[in-house]
Amino acid sequence: MKKYANKSILVAEDHPDGRKLVVRLLDKLGISNVVAVANGQEAKEQLQGQAFDLLLADWHMPKMDGLELLKSAKADAALKHMRVLMVTANDDKEHILEAILAGADGYLVKPVTQERLQQKLEDIFKDEE
């Protein structure tokens, strides 16, 4: 069993097709404890009521974007240790650096594939056995 298979993941992605794709890919990787929401505000509400091992957040979302969500989570004592994987179509170095400096544990450039998602999960949870 993969070391991340029992993790709980919150997926924040505003595009329905993108959200379904990520949930389906996580399921193929053996992760079934997934909650998916359509924007950063919904994600923030979910984070107040449930503990997650990983937040997988799209950068560009309505109501609250992924970077705001990341900063909000890292500023919250109860959430600051949760791992965060930012997902975006923007691959410029400044964008990536901004996410890492804000506390992101990883950065995944769209399109999301099973192989790349698996590699990011392995990187993020590599310190756990």
Rank of each mutant, 00 (worst) to 15 (best):
E68D: 13
G66R: 06
W59S: 01
M82F: 10
E68H: 10
L85M: 08
A89L: 09
A78S: 12
A75D: 15
E68A: 15
V87W: 03
D76I: 01
T88W: 08
K93T: 13
R83P: 01
N90G: 00
L67E: 00
T88S: 15
K80F: 11
D92F: 12
G66E: 03
K93H: 08
A77K: 15
K93A: 15
V84Q: 06
V87G: 02
A75I: 02
M86N: 04
D92C: 06
A78Y: 01
H81W: 02
V84I: 15
K71E: 14
V84L: 03
R83S: 10
A78T: 09
K74P: 04
L85G: 01
K93P: 09
V87Y: 07
N90I: 11
R83K: 15
V84A: 14
D91R: 05
A78Q: 12
L67K: 10
E94V: 13
K80V: 05
W59I: 13
E94H: 03
E94Y: 07
D91K: 09
K63M: 09
A73R: 05
E68G: 10
D65W: 04
M61K: 13
M61C: 07
H60Q: 14
L70E: 03
E94L: 11
M64Q: 11
D65H: 04
K74S: 06
W59V: 15
A75E: 14
G66L: 06
M86A: 09
M61D: 09
P62T: 09
V84C: 15
D91C: 00
V84D: 02
K74E: 01
G66A: 02
E94Q: 13
A78E: 12
T88G: 09
N90F: 12
A75C: 00
P62G: 11
K63W: 05
A78H: 10
T88C: 13
L70C: 15
G66K: 05
M82A: 08
N90K: 07
T88V: 07
L70G: 01
M61T: 09
L69R: 02
V87E: 02
K74F: 07
H81V: 05
H81D: 13
D65G: 03
M64K: 13
K63C: 06
L69P: 04
M82V: 06
A78I: 00
T88M: 08
D76T: 11
A78P: 00
L69V: 02
D76K: 03
E68C: 05
W59N: 09
V87S: 04
M61G: 05
M61H: 10
L79G: 01
D92A: 04
D76M: 06
G66W: 06
A89C: 14
L67W: 01
A78C: 04
K71L: 10
D76N: 14
T88L: 09
H60E: 14
R83I: 03
A75W: 02
M64W: 05
K93I: 10
G66T: 08
A77G: 00
M86V: 12
K93D: 14
M82N: 07
K74R: 14
L85A: 03
M86G: 05
L69G: 08
E94N: 11
P62S: 10
M82D: 09
L67I: 15
A77V: 07
G66Q: 07
K63F: 08
K71H: 00
K80Q: 13
M86D: 01
K71Q: 15
T88A: 09
A73G: 07
L70W: 05
A89N: 10
L67V: 12
M86I: 15
N90L: 12
G66C: 11
A73W: 05
